[in-house]
């Protein structure tokens, strides 16, 4: 725009040109409108109403269903006072750490690393097996996991082969069962991320370390892991976000039970809102979950920042 510097600001031609440019800019952004409308109505709308609803006593039935009134922080105060909520928070953290941060990440990394040193046929078999659990519809893998861990299930059949009389896993160790099931279901994602990341590590670097006499484990932890730490943090963030919203797997396997022994926050929100008709209470839990998700999501895009332009 060097020519505009010499033109007077009130020049009619320039004014017309800015008008045309502005009109073109608006016209060019017009195709964004459908996506903005969809997101505003179906995503932003519920989020805003979630924040608002968590401050009311709205319910699915009864007087409060017609005219919900403003109750301030009552839902949140009740939430923190009720015995169910702190327990659900702890179980959610245990679930995320056990199945995502540790389970899926470690198994996914192990698989990705082994597939590089293993044969290609074996790697293809493992890849297919791991991805199959991930691609199946969630309700189907939930049934499969339910059958696997049930008292007469495959796990106990296998254990009886070596003379162990297995317990009813879903009742005796509900959290362990759902954590193992979620590792089984979700590891494929980490495996794919880490396989791609390991492919980008130049082999010369690890070879040079091998020349210098570094052992396999040393090479892996001192050279490979630091080189792919970007992928590791991205993957940790994404698996945490995915695991935070796991509902179906736990719902089918244990329904949050026995008692509340495997009731994570999504299950608690569902039960309070739909089973006990405490919509405001359920909405408060949903709002907290959304806030936690928002914080993680925010950290995640901060880490990804350079890729947006």
């Amino acid at each position: 725009m060097t020519s505009s510097a010499t033109t007077p600001a009130d020049h009619p031609l320039r004014a017309r040109r800015t008008r045309v440019l502005r009109a073109r800019k608006v016209a060019r952004s017009l195709p964004l409108l459908p996506s903005i409308v969809l997101i505003a109505i179906f995503l932003l709308g519920p989020i805003i109403s979630s924040f608002y609803g968590s401050f009311t006593n709205s319910a699915l039935t009864g007087a409060a269903a017609q005219n919900p009134s403003f109750v301030g922080f009552d839902n949140y105060v009740n939430l923190f006072k009720s015995p169910g909520f702190p327990g659900a928070v702890i179980l959610t953290i245990v679930f995320i750490f056990g199945s995502a941060v540790i389970g899926q990440n470690v198994v996914g990394m192990l698989l990705a690393a082994l597939m590089r040193s293993g044969g290609s046929v074996v790697s293809a078999i493992v890849g297919t097996a791991v991805v199959a659990a991930w691609v199946l519809p969630e309700i189907v893998s939930a049934f499969a996991a339910y059958a696997f861990f049930s008292e007469q299930g495959t796990l106990n059949n296998l254990l009886s082969l070596v003379g162990i009389d297995g317990p009813n896993w879903l009742f005796t160790f509900p959290m362990l069962s759902v954590i193992l099931a979620n590792i089984w279901r979700g590891t494929a994602f980490s495996m794919l991320v880490y396989s791609a990341a390991l492919q980008d590590v130049p082999p010369e670097i690890t070879e040079a370390a091998e020349m210098d006499g570094a052992s396999g484990a040393k090479r892996f932890f001192l050279i490979t892991v630091p080189m792919i730490r970007g992928s590791i943090s991205t993957n940790l963030m994404l698996t945490t976000l995915q695991t935070l919203s796991v509902f179906t797997l736990i719902f089918v396997m244990t329904a949050g039970g026995p008692g509340t022994a495997s009731t994570t926050l999504p299950l608690l929100a569902y039960q309070e809102a739909f089973k006990f008709s405490q919509l405001g209470y359920g909405t408060a839990i949903a709002t907290i979950l959304l806030l936690v998700g928002a914080v993680f999501s925010f950290i995640y895009i901060r880490a990804l920042k350079p890729e947006v332009d």
Binding site: I39, F42, L43, P46, I47, S49, S50, G53, S58, M237, L238, L241, L244, S245, V246, F247, L265, P266, A269, Y270, A273, F274, L279, G282, T283, I285, A286, L289, L290, G293, A294, F296, S297, F298, Y300, I301
Partner: peptide, 16 residues
Amino acid sequence: FATGLPITAMMVPVYS
């Protein structure tokens, strides 16, 4: 940012 939001958590407000 929206890709990271837990859709499960949204179902209660979406339902209302």
